[in-house]
Computed example of a mutant assay.
Amino acid sequence: MESKESGLPLVFVHGTRLSGTMWRPVIRAVGERHPTAAPDLPGHGDRRGEPFSIPGAVAAVTEAIDALGGRAVLVGLSLGGYVAIATAAAHPDRVLGTVAMGCTTLPRGAFGAVYRGAAWLAARNPQRADRLSAFAFRRALPPPQARAMVSGGLSCEITPSIIKAVSEMDPTALLFAYPGPVWLVNGERDHFRRHERLFLRACRDGRLVIRPGCGHLTSLTDTADLTRHIRDAATVVAARSHSSSIPEGVR
């Protein structure tokens, strides 16, 4: 389904230790129909070395929205999905819709402990962790997607503060605070699916999309299919925006 409305801005939000370059294949596939941005979050990419926080990440995304005209659809994967949800709750007037991928788990308890342990190990030897991450991307993804993941640099040293910040979030409360449309998009094999039904119930206007055969990273493999989901979301948002701009008496 392709929107006849052109120019609806899209802001892409990257995952942990990555940068905005991870979205290059998708942005190319989206084409020139939509203005796009893929900002680096604090501690990542061109902002490596800065401390990470959820408010700082929200500010980075909001700046990107404002640079595209002040309103946009957000698309985020993993950490990017959590940040997109937080941005939507903080600035519902700026966020037209949210596509939150691979971020429907509460990173607490035993699950959170595993990730805190992995983050601590990564931060102890970030150069080695960066190399292992790059190797994992090359094994899991086709060459164009793998190159996009690493071309902006990796920042494994920032992972402990990210895990701490995300574990202190209440994403279900943030989803409930946002009145706009939300797409929770998970790969069928994604380990971050654990609480997807809880997240869906928290949405005031939500839908759950399961992509067969995909995992957490491999959800990026089929760029055409992923782009279709994003365009479908943009179509819905554009149609709603057009409808709400028509006076009731003329509908």
Rank of each mutant, 00 (worst) to 15 (best):
S151R: 14
G152R: 07
A173G: 12
F137H: 11
A86F: 02
R201I: 09
F199I: 09
L184M: 14
A86E: 04
A113T: 11
G43D: 14
S78P: 09
L217D: 13
R28T: 11
F135V: 14
P181R: 15
E5M: 09
P25D: 02
V58M: 08
H229C: 12
W183R: 08
R193H: 09
T221R: 15
R33H: 10
G31W: 02
L41S: 00
A113P: 01
A64S: 08
V73Y: 01
N125I: 09
V30E: 12
T105Q: 10
A89S: 07
T16K: 00
D40C: 11
L208F: 11
A177F: 02
Q145Y: 00
M22R: 01
S245L: 14
R228D: 15
R108W: 01
H229A: 06
D225E: 15
A146E: 03
A123S: 14
G45D: 03
G180E: 10
F137E: 03
R94F: 01
S219V: 14
D170Y: 04
R124Y: 06
A90L: 05
L198Q: 14
A29K: 11
L174Y: 05
G7C: 07
G206M: 14
A64I: 13
N125C: 04
G31T: 05
E50N: 04
A88H: 01
A238P: 10
L106T: 13
E248K: 11
W183Q: 09
G20M: 03
R189T: 08
E32W: 05
R131V: 09
V250M: 15
T87S: 15
G70E: 10
N186L: 13
E63D: 12
R47W: 00
S19K: 05
T227M: 03
G215M: 11
F135N: 13
T221D: 11
G56H: 03
S244M: 15
D170A: 15
A84W: 02
F137W: 10
L68H: 01
A224S: 15
L175T: 07
G45W: 04
G213M: 09
G206Q: 15
S155M: 08
C214V: 12
A165H: 04
P25G: 00
A29Q: 12
H229Q: 11
L226S: 09
A118K: 11
V182M: 02
H195D: 15
E2W: 04
R47M: 01
L184D: 03
H91Y: 11
T221H: 13
L208I: 14
I54C: 07
F12L: 08
G213Y: 13
H242V: 15
A90H: 00
L132R: 14
V73P: 03
S78M: 01
A72N: 05
A57V: 12
M1V: 12
L174G: 04
S53D: 02
R47V: 06
C156R: 12
P160T: 05
G70N: 08
G112M: 08
M1F: 12
G43V: 13
C103R: 10
A238T: 07
F199M: 09
S219E: 06
D93S: 09
A136C: 01
A38V: 02
A122H: 02
E168Y: 03
R251Y: 06
V26P: 00
R207S: 12
